[in-house]
Amino acid sequence: MEKLLLAIPNRCTGCNRCTYACSAVKEGMFIPSKARIKINNFAHEGYSVPSVCFQCPNADCMKACPEDAIIKNERGVIAININKCTRCGECVSACQYGMMEQYDSGVPYKCDLCGGSPACVGECNFGALVFKEADKVSRKLRSQQMKQRQTDGRPDQKRHKLAKVILKEAVRVPRTANYMG
């Protein structure tokens, strides 16, 4: 059965443990700027919004690749075949959620769900990141977030615009000492 990586913004504390875990797994060291998950902090509002790759059913990054270097694997995960990649950056521009990025060398990178056990989810103490079998509620949440496409800007700008809309629509509750989401 299909599993989805979900971000639940009203539970995110902005601790960035997920970005540290991701970069440690993917880069072999703590480099949050190279993590496949990003946290958008809205300090004045007291909220943070995780940005995750939606593993789009009809992925624009995959369609944009002139070399067919981006594929959907047997688990339904959008992955990059680096051996076919020409480093053109079309996939980065095409991702309307800002979740495809490139190293300085031009090689693109994105979330691959850590082979089915996302490290970011394991580090999220408050349940802001969930990896679960798709059900009616999780599909609805993902669908609402995916409607907020951004066509202009760099990946960080697209993520920030998307996060602002998600935050605006999120259920905000006062946080107390006993708050757990």
Rank of each mutant, 00 (worst) to 15 (best):
R142Y: 02
T151G: 00
G76M: 13
M100N: 01
N125E: 14
C15P: 09
Q144F: 06
N40I: 12
G106S: 06
H44S: 13
R154P: 04
K63V: 01
G153N: 11
H44G: 15
P108E: 09
F54T: 07
Y20M: 15
F42I: 03
L6T: 05
I37D: 00
K63Q: 12
V121A: 09
Q150K: 06
I80T: 09
S93E: 12
V52D: 00
G28W: 02
A170L: 06
Y109L: 06
G127F: 00
P57D: 15
R175D: 02
R17M: 11
M29T: 10
V107C: 04
Q102I: 02
K147I: 05
C111P: 05
E45C: 10
A177C: 04
K161T: 11
M99V: 14
D68N: 15
G98C: 08
T176S: 08
Q150A: 04
G127M: 10
V171F: 07
I71A: 12
G98A: 08
N41Y: 03
Y103I: 04
L5H: 02
K34L: 15
A69C: 08
S93Q: 13
I39D: 01
M29Y: 04
C56M: 03
C91A: 11
L162K: 14
N10Q: 15
R175Q: 07
A43R: 13
V173N: 10
V92T: 13
A128Q: 05
I70L: 15
I82Y: 12
E123Y: 10
R75I: 05
R17C: 04
C65E: 12
R172W: 09
R87D: 08
R142A: 04
M100A: 05
R154C: 07
K63C: 04
S143V: 01
T86W: 07
F126D: 14
M146S: 05
K110W: 00
E133C: 09
F30Q: 12
P32H: 04
L6N: 03
I80Q: 03
T86N: 15
K110T: 13
G106F: 05
T176N: 06
C65V: 13
C85P: 02
V92H: 02
V137K: 12
S51M: 05
N40F: 01
C53M: 05
S117N: 15
N73Q: 10
R172V: 11
N178M: 10
I37E: 03
V77S: 00
A69W: 05
T13A: 13
C56Q: 02
C18I: 06
P32R: 07
R154K: 15
I39S: 03
E123T: 04
G89R: 06
H160A: 13
C111L: 03
N10C: 09
K140Q: 13
S48P: 07
K140R: 12
A170G: 05
P57C: 02
G89K: 09
L5P: 00
P32Y: 01
A119D: 07
I166A: 08
T86E: 14
A128P: 00
D60L: 10
A119F: 08
Q96L: 08
K168G: 04
K72R: 15
N125V: 09
E90L: 09
C124P: 06
L167F: 06
E101W: 01
K132Y: 07
D135S: 11
D135F: 11
V52F: 01
C85G: 08
E45S: 13
R11G: 01
P9Y: 02
N16I: 07
D135G: 09
P155Y: 00
F131K: 08
G153T: 08
